[in-house]
Design a protein around this nucleic acid. Sequence first.
RNA 1: GGGGAUUUAGCUCAGUUGGCUAGAGCGUACGAUUCACAUUCGUAAGGUCACAGGUUCGAGCCCUGUAAUCCCCACCA
Length: 920
Amino acid sequence: MRFSSSYEPGEYESDIYAAWETSGIFNPKMTTLPVDNNDDGIDDREENISDSKTFSIVMPPPNANGNLHIGHGLTIALEDSLTRYYRLKGRSSWYIPGADHAGFETWVVYEKELEKSGHTRFEYSRDELYARVWNFVAEQRGNMELQLRALGASCSWDDLTFTLDENVIDRVYTTFEKMWNDGLIYRGEKLVNFCPKHQTAFADIEVEHEDEKGTLWDIAYKLVEEPKDASLALSREIIVSTTRPETLFGDVAVAVNPNDERYKDLIGKHVELPLTDRTIPIIADEHADPEYGTGAVKITPAHDFDDFEVGERHHLERIQVIAEDGTMINVPEEYNGSTTAECRKKALKNLKEQGLLKGEKKIEHTVAHCYKCGTTIEPMLKEQWFIDVERLAKTAIEHLENNEIKFYPDNKRKILIDYLKNLKDWNISRQIPWGIAIPMFRKIDDRATDEPEWIFDRRTNLKEIEKAGVKYIRDEDTFDTWFSSSHWPIVCTNWTEENYNPYYPLNVMETGADILFAWVARMIMMGIYVTGEVPFREVYLHGLVLDAHGKKMSKSKGNVINPMDLVTRYGSDAFRLGILRGRSAGMNQAFSENSVISGRNLCNKLWNISRLIQSLVDENEQSERENLISEGIRSYDEDERADPVTTGVGDAPRRNNDFSLAYSTLNMGEDWICREINDCLKQVEKDMKAYRFAEAVEILYQTIWDKYADWFLESQKIYKNTELLKITLEMLLIALHPFAPFVTETIWQNLSWTEGFIATAKWPVKLQYDPISAENFENIRIIVSEVRTTLQSLPGTNNSKKYNLLYDNDSLVDDNRLLIQTLSKVPAINPLDGSPRGLRLALVNHELYLDVSEKVVTTYKDTLTEKILSTGRELNALNARMMNPNYIKKAPEHLVKETEDAIREKESLINRLKQQLSLI
RNA sequence: GGGGAUUUAGCUCAGUUGGCUAGAGCGUACGAUUCACAUUCGUAAGGUCACAGGUUCGAGCCCUGUAAUCCCCACCA
C-alpha cells in the first residue's frame, strides 16, 4: 500500500518542492524555448513563441529581509494558481520572483538598530551607511524566499530580481537620463512633505491624512496706514485665524478675497506682523474664502502648500522659519532654536500679553502624518528632483481610455484615470541612504560659467567627478522606491530596446488594490514611456485580508494571522484553498481558520479517493493476472451489470499526454461522471479567464466531493471501470493542481500508472459520453435521494427503518436494482406484487413505494398533508403566472412551456399525494 | 468637500446578459458506523435578498431616493 490512511502534508511538501525546483520546470526557457537561444536565439523565439503561447507574471517583490504576511499569502495563492493553470494549459509560463530592498521600511528598521547601539546616521557618510544596510539586509535575507517555496510559488528562481540589482539600477538610470534629456526632470525649490523624525521628504501618496481635534486662534494684525473709510477699517486691525501660530514669523502677507467688500480698500495697505518689527502687505487672492473666519488669511509660503501657491502668484518671499529637525530658525532670539511646540506656547503667551490674541476655538481638521512613525508632516521648503508628470499622465490616460488594460475589478480603471487627471508633479528625491543614488552631479567650480549647473552621470559610486576640466559633486539623495519599482515589469522580463520579448507586456499584473496609485499607475506611465507599450494587459487587484469578523488585522488588536503558521498546521494547499475561498477582486474580505480546515479536508478527501482508486487498480491487475492464468474472461460479474444503456465510446480519448489511456463508458454512472467532469472543467476554464478564483475552487470542491466521491465512486464499488477511474482521477488532479499543487503532485507521484510531474501535465480535453445514459443516472440519483429523505422523515430513530422498496412497471428501477439498493441502503428492491401498498414516494415519473406498515404510514400523515399544502402553494404561483395574458404574450416561448410542464407535474404530484392520504 | 464600494441564512460569501421555487461552506439539530476517508456518511431546520418608491409579463439583479458600514482622494486657514 502506497497511501497511508490520511494525507500528512508535512511529510511531503518540502520534498515535492525540491523536486520541482531541481528539475527546472519553473524556468520557461528551459522547458519550452529552443536550446540555441544564445546568439541567434532571439529569432527563434519570435518564430516559435507567439504571445498566446506564453504567460508572464511578476511577483510584487516582498521585503528581502522580512517575513511574509497574510497579504503575501493571498498574493502567492492567486499568482501561482494562474501560473500553474496556464502552465498546464501548455503555455510557456514565467513567474518571476522578486525581493525588495524596501528603501524606507528597511531604513527605519536599520536606523532603530543604529540608535540602540548609541549611534546616529549623521556619524557616517552615505556610502558607509549604504554598505552597512547592505550587510544588515544580507544577514537577514533568505527567510522570505523559503516561505515563498513553502507556499508553493512556482516561480523561476534563477530569474529572481532584487530591486538593487545592477540591471535594475542601470535601467532606472537610463530612464532618468532619457527623462532628463526630454526635459521631464527638473530641480525645484518647492514645498515637500517632510518628516522631521526621519529627516526625509515623501511623495503625496506616502502621507496619511487623519482627522484631528485642533485649536483655531484669532490673531490681530494692526494696520499701518489709516484707512480711507474708518467704518470699514475694523478698528484698525485685521484678524486672521490660524491653527499654527508659530508660523507667523514666516508670514509675508495677509490675503483677502478680491470680491470681499469688507476689505476692498485695504488691499495694498500694510499690517504690522506681531512679535516682529516687520510689516507685510495685504493682498487680494481667491484663496481667501470670505465665508471662513474673518475672511482674511495669513500667508506663509515656506510652510503651507496653499500659501506657497499664493506666494507664487504674487511673487512673495519665502521665509523658512522651521528647520529640517523641527526647530525654529530665522526668528527673534527668544524663539530661536526652540521646537515648534515650545515656540507656539511662547508666541501665544506673548500675543496674549500684547492683547493681540482675540480668540480661540476648538475645531476638527485633517493633519498629515508620516505613514511610518505618525509624526506630523512638516511642509518644508526644499530643493528636490521632480518629474513633470503631465505628459506621462496624459499618455497613460489615452492608453487606459483606449481599453488597452483590462481591470479586475473593472471600476478601478476609471478611478485610475481620475487620479492621473489630477496628478501633481512627483517628488522623487529622498533623504535616506538606503536606495538607488540619484545620478546627478552639481558643478562646484564657479568659474566654469558656461557649463550647466547639474549634469547626469552614472558614476554614483564617486562623490566627486570631473568632466571637461570642471568638477562636480554628487547629489546625496536617493530615488523614491516607486520610481525604480515603476520599472518592475520591464526589468523583470529583461525587456530591451533591441530585441523582441515575448514575455512583455505581462499577461497580468496582480497586486493589492491599496497600491493602485502608488505602483500600478506609475508602472503604466513608465512602461509606456520606456517601451511604448502598456506593461501588462490585465490587472487583478486583491483587497485586504481581514480577520474572521471582518476587522483589519493589526498587531495592536492582536488579530494577526501568520500564514506560515497555518501552512505548518494544515499544509500549504489547505492554506491556499482556504484563502481563495469567498474572495473576489478588489474587496476587503474576512478570512478564518475554518476555511483552511475545509481546504485541508478536501486534500484529505482527494488523498483517500486516490487511495481507493489505486487499490481498485491494484486489485484489477491482480485479477487480470489470475484470469490470464486461468483464461478467465471478465473481472466482474455479468449478472450484476445494469442495463447496458451505454453506447460505450470506443474511441480513445484525444489526449496529448504521453500517458494516454483508452477508456470506454460501460454504465450510466460512468457517462454521468464524464458529463459532470466536462461541465466542471468548462466552468473552471471560464472562471480562470475571468479571475474568479473562489468560484473555480468551489466547483472543483463540489465536483470532487459531492459528485465524484459521493456518487460516482460509490457506484463504482459495484461496477469497476479501472481505466475510466484512472483517467477521471487524473483529470481532477490536474484541474485542482493550480490551487492545491502539493497534494496533487504527491498523489501523482504515488499512483502506479502516472509519469512525470503533474505540474507539467497537459490540461485535460473533454471526455466523450452518452448523454441519455448520463441523464438516466441523474434520475437514479433523484430516486435515491427521495428514498433517503423519506426514510429520514419517518418516525423511529434507528436501524428499525429498514424498509424494502417496491416498484411498479419501471424499467429504469428494474434495470438498476442493485445500484439503487447499494446507494440507498434499503434491504431489497422488489416489483410490486398485487395492489400498491406502503408509502408512495413523491416522485413524478416513477411509481415507487416504501414497504412500510399501515401504522407507520399513519404517522406519516402530517408530513404528507404539509407536502400537499406546500406543493399546492407552488402550483398556485405557477397558475397565477399563466393567468396573466401578458406573460403568455411577452415571455419567451420556452419559459411558458416550462411553466405549463411544471403545472402538470405539480398537479399530478398533488393527486398522487392525495390518493396516498386517502389510503390512510 | 469629492469619489468608490458594501448591505442576501447564526457567521463568511456566491448569485455573470432580469426567468429564482434564492445557493455554498462553516456553524446548528437529528440520524448512521467496521472501511478509501470521523479530516467520514446521510437528512433537516434556517432568508420580507437593508429600507421606500419606480420600470417590467416577471426584479436579489435595472432606475430613483433613504439609511448603515467600510475604503480612497482632497489645500480649507
